[in-house]
């Protein structure tokens, strides 16, 4: 069955000519401005890479007054050519999500709450914890008397979310300290 809505139009008798929106003096919320500036007009475009799977789709972030206003796939990157999946499309709300951790948080032993601390306070104390652990537990020789210089009681887990440069210095730091328990997403 083919419905001919043109006949319905006659029936309804409206017949009003379509207007271009520019001729209408109406505001169009929630349709949003049609002829005015887009939210990305005049925004700075910055190329980034999607933080999810390892297709590494390129994304353009649109920034206005230091704030991210929109994101779109980068049409020039020959792999995604501007397209994205559900996760890649969600970069704006990922960045603006109100669930983000805001400050360094410290939980004392046996405490039932987080306390806000400064980065400096945290890093000082972390360094102290690592040093104490290393000084106490570093194994210089194994049972056979071989030099092993390893720290078994401390570990690093993660992360493929880190960039290459971060991974490189993470590895260097851990081997420098003697850490042997090291693993990340590549094994799971």
């Amino acid at each position: 069955m083919k419905i001919d809505r043109r006949s319905f139009m006659k029936l309804a008798g409206s017949g009003a000519a379509c207007l271009t929106l520019g001729q209408l003096g109406v505001s169009l919320t929630p349709v949003r401005a049609y002829a005015g500036d887009l939210k990305i007009s005049g925004a700075k475009e910055v190329v980034t890479v999607c933080p999810f799977c390892s297709v590494s789709c390129h994304i353009i972030g649109y920034v206005k007054e230091g704030k991210l206003v929109s994101t779109e796939g980068d049409p020039d990157y020959p792999i995604n050519e501007g397209s994205l999946c559900a996760k890649g499309a969600a970069m704006l709300t990922m960045t603006t999500s109100h669930h983000r951790l805001q400050k360094p948080l410290y939980r004392a032993p046996y405490s039932d709450k987080w306390e806000e601390k400064s980065w400096d306070w945290m890093l000082d104390r972390i360094a102290r914890r690592i040093k104490d652990t290393r000084d106490k537990d570093l194994i210089l020789k194994n049972a056979k008397g071989d030099t092993v210089n390893r720290l078994e009681s401390m570990f690093l887990l993660g992360t493929s979310h880190a960039g290459n440069e971060e991974c490189a210095i993470a590895h260097q730091a851990m081997r420098g300290l003697g850490v042997v328990h090291m693993d990340h997403q590549a094994r799971i």
Binding site: C50, P51, F52, C53, S54, S56, T159, S160, H161, A162, G163, N164, C167, A168, A170, H171, H184, Q185, A186
Partner: peptide, 11 residues
């Protein structure tokens, strides 16, 4: 799978 699992494995 992961966002930089190739790089984090290389490193």
């Amino acid at each position: 799978g992961e966002p930089n699992v190739q790089g984090s494995t290389d490193h």
